[in-house]
């Protein structure tokens, strides 16, 4: 984690010893580049927001206007009228909260078991967990569709959530973290007569907060953005999640109403954007950290 903590630290350049004039020139260049990069990421976002609040005929007007003559919410109401985005939102919310919560709980329990409890052949089981990291999700679609069909769970929340619940990545990450915890604390807890579940809940988890939060945030982002699985497993409009709802809107209304589509897009993006703003330290450090550590 220490390498990552430094991410938020302001660093000075390696070129600290250069003459000031040269340095200023270089700084100017890097500001220009930074500005350029910012534009590359901001302009499409601006383009989206602009269309979402522009009256429809202004979107199709040439030459373009850089700002709506009168910002409007009509695109949002049009999107809501064309497709039940409130329902999509609830579906996404439910699938994301239930899916992510259960996933993290399962990962924590499994990681605890692997870190602190004995079991014959435990090493092999853990290798099995690691192996699952190498199974690409796309390869599992056909058979998981079949399995969910046979369980009678097509077009149900359980059907959307179930295949994603098993957590190999979270288990791996948390186990590594649990193993690094100071043994003394856990031994003291044991002397106090704490059961394993209490040890997990009151000692191990609080001491592993950053790791747990990272695993949870990644789970939330994955669930919310998941695309192909909900697309396959849901049939009816009222079971669609937000991303599938957006595709549905694009297909059913055609590409002839960009204002409405951009309004809907904005609705999908916003929750994750807010989450990202509030938890960016955990997300960036967690995701990059999970990467660097390997």
């Amino acid at each position: 984690m220490s390498a990552l903590a430094s991410l938020t630290r302001e660093t000075t350049t390696a070129a600290g010893g250069r003459p000031p004039a040269k340095r200023r020139k270089r700084h100017l260049a890097s500001y220009l580049l930074l500005g350029l990069i910012a534009l590359v990421f901001l302009v499409p976002a601006y383009w989206m927001v602009l269309a979402a609040i522009k009256p429809n005929d202004e979107i199709y007007q040439w030459p373009f206007t850089p700002w709506p003559s009168e910002p409007t919410t009509e695109n949002f109401s049009a999107a809501l009228a064309a497709a039940p985005f409130d329902q999509f939102f609830m579906n996404s919310l439910l699938v994301t909260t239930v899916g992510a919560t259960v996933k993290v709980a399962l990962a924590a329990l499994t990681a605890y078991a692997f870190a602190f409890l004995p079991f014959p052949g435990k090493k092999w089981l853990f290798l099995g967990v690691l192996g699952a990291l190498m199974v690409p999700g796309h390869v599992t679609l056909l058979l998981n569709y079949s399995t969910i069909s046979n369980l009678g769970l097509i077009n149900t929340y359980a059907g959307i959530i179930l295949p994603g619940l098993g957590s190999a990545f979270g288990t791996f990450l948390l186990r590594q973290h649990f193993m690094g915890l100071p043994k003394e604390v856990l031994e003291a807890a044991e002397l106090d007569g704490a059961g394993h579940l209490r040890k997990l809940w009151s000692f191990v988890l609080p001491m592993s907060k950053p790791a747990v939060i990272t695993v949870a945030l990644i789970a939330v982002i994955d669930e919310w953005n998941d695309f192909i699985w909900p697309l396959l497993v849901t049939n009816t409009l009222d079971m669609r999640t937000m991303p599938i709802g957006l595709m549905f809107l694009k297909q059913s209304e055609g590409l002839d109403d960009w204002g409405m589509i951009m309004a809907a897009t904005l609705m999908i993006v916003l929750p994750m954007l807010l989450l990202f703003l509030f938890a960016q330290k955990y997300i960036i450090n967690g995701m990059a950290g999970a990467a660097v550590r390997r």
Binding site: L106, A107, L109, T110, Y112, A113, F114, L117, P118, F119, P120, K122, L125, G128, V129, G131, A132, V135, V139, T140, L141, L142, L143, N144, S146, T147, L162, P163, G164, L165, G166, S167, A168, T171, H196
Partner: peptide, 28 residues
Amino acid sequence: RKYLLFALFAFPNLLLIAVFAYWPILGN
């Protein structure tokens, strides 16, 4: 008892991994 606890803690997850990650490879 600890084995049992291990099983209770880990097996639900392991079962899910087996069914939704390993079985598809074989099934494919």
